[in-house]
C-alpha cells in the first residue's frame, strides 16, 4: 500500500498554488492570454480525468466525451442565458443533464464489446451535435451567444480539485475496485459476483457528469458555444491527453492535460503540424508505452521518496514530514 502525503502539507500547497495564481492574475503579471490558457488547462484536466475514469479505470472505450461536454455546456447555457438563473444551478443542471445522457447512452451500449462501444459512442457524439443544431431553443447551428462570463480562477480551481477528489475517492472505494476488476478481466469479475453492467454504467455516468461540468465551465468562460465545436476532434484531443499521461493514471491525466494544453499554445505558429504531431504522439504512446508517461502510477509518498534521492534537498525535507 502506498503511503500518502500528510493532508496539511497538501492543503498548504494547494492554497499556495491558488494564491500565487490569484495574485498573478490580479496584479497583471499573468497576461490575459496565459490566463485563458490556465483556465483551459483546468477544463482539460477535468475532461481528461473523467475520460480516464471511463477508458482507463473501467477499461471501456468511449469516444463520446465531446458529446457529453456539449450536453453540459448547452444545458448550463440555457439555465443562465435563456432562463436567467444562477450559475451554481447551471453547474448542477449541466452535470445532471450530462449524467442522464450518459445513462441513456450507457445502458444499451455498455453491453457492447470495447471496440463496438467506441464506434457507438462516437455515433452518439455525432447525434448530439445534429440534435443540438436542430433545436432552436438552444440557438440551432449558431449556438448560444452572450452566456454570462462568470467563470474565474476560484471556480476553475475548485472544480478541478473537486473532480480529482471525486475520481480519486471513487477509485479507492469498493466501487472503484470493482471497476478495476472489470478492466482486468470482466468474465472473471462477473464470476466473483460483480454486477458488471452496474459498475460500467456507474463509472460511465460519473465520467459523463464531469464532462458536463467541464462543458458548463467552458460555456461560461468563452460565452459562445456552437454545436459544431463539440466534434470528434475535441474528443480526440482529450484522448491524446489521457494516453500521453497514462491510461489508468489520474496523475497522468493531469500531467497529460497540462502538457498538451501548453504544447498546443506553443504550436500555435505551426498549426498544420499540430495535428500531425498529436496523431504521431497517440500512435507512439499506444505502441511503445501503452501505459503512458506515468503508467498507472500515482504520485505518492513512496514515489516522492524515490525522487528525493535523485532531486535536491527540498524533497528530502518533504520526506521528513
Amino acid at each position: 500500500m502506498k503511503k500518502n502525503l500528510p493532508i496539511v502539507f497538501v492543503c498548504v500547497l494547494l492554497f499556495a498554488l491558488f494564491a500565487v495564481v490569484q495574485v498573478g492574475l490580479s496584479s497583471g503579471f499573468i497576461s490575459s492570454y496565459w490566463e485563458t490558457n490556465i483556465y483551459l488547462i483546468g477544463i482539460n484536466i477535468i475532461l481528461a480525468a473523467s475520460l480516464n475514469l471511463i477508458n482507463g479505470i473501467t477499461g471501456e472505450f468511449s469516444l463520446g466525451h465531446a458529446g457529453f461536454m456539449a450536453v453540459g455546456a448547452f444545458a448550463g447555457g440555457v439555465i443562465t442565458l435563456n432562463l436567467g438563473l444562477p450559475f451554481l444551478l447551471a453547474i448542477v443542471v449541466g452535470m445532471l443533464a450530462a449524467a442522464l445522457a450518459g445513462l441513456l447512452v450507457g445502458l444499451p451500449t455498455l453491453r457492447l464489446r470495447g471496440d463496438y462501444l467506441a464506434i457507438a459512442t462516437l455515433g452518439f457524439g455525432e447525434i448530439v451535435r445534429v440534435v443540438m443544431m436542430n433545436i432552436d431553443y438552444v440557438g440551432g447551428a449558431a449556438g448560444l451567444m452572450g452566456i454570462p462570463a462568470v467563470v474565474n480562477w476560484p471556480i476553475i480551481f475548485i472544480s478541478v480539485v473537486f473532480t480529482i477528489l471525486l475520481i480519486r475517492n471513487f477509485i479507492c472505494s469498493s466501487h472503484g475496485r470493482s471497476c478495476l476488476a472489470l478492466r482486468e478481466n470482466d468474465t472473471a469479475a462477473q464470476m466473483m459476483g460483480i454486477n458488471i453492467t452496474y459498475y460500467k454504467v456507474m463509472a460511465f455516468v460519473i465520467g459523463a457528469a464531469l464532462a458536463g461540468l467541464a462543458g458548463v465551465l467552458y460555456a461560461h468562460y468563452y460565452t459562445i458555444i456552437q454545436p459544431k465545436e463539440f466534434n470528434f476532434l475535441l474528443t480526440f484531443d482529450i484522448l491524446v491527453m489521457v494516453m500521453v499521461g497514462g491510461l489508468g493514471s489520474l496523475t497522468g491525466s493531469v500531467v497529460g492535460a497540462v502538457l498538451i494544453t501548453v504544447a498546443s499554445a506553443f504550436l500555435q505558429s505551426i498549426p498544420e503540424l499540430r495535428m500531425v504531431i498529436y496523431a504521431a504522439l497517440l500512435i507512439a504512446s499506444a505502441v511503445f508505452r501503452p501505459q503512458g508517461l506515468l503508467g498507472a502510477k500515482e504520485v505518492s509518498m513512496n514515489l516522492l521518496r524515490k525522487w528525493g534521492g535523485v532531486l535536491n534537498g527540498s524533497d528530502g525535507s518533504k520526506q521528513a514530514q
Binding site: 477508458n55 477499461g59 472505450f61 467506441a118 504521431a280 504522439l281 505502441v287
Partner: peptide, 20 residues
Amino acid sequence: LAALTSAIGMSLFLEYTMMY
C-alpha cells in the same frame, strides 16, 4: 484498446499529414 487508440491515431495522422 491500445490497438484501437493506435488505429485512431493512424487515421488522423494520414489525414493531417496529407493536409500538410
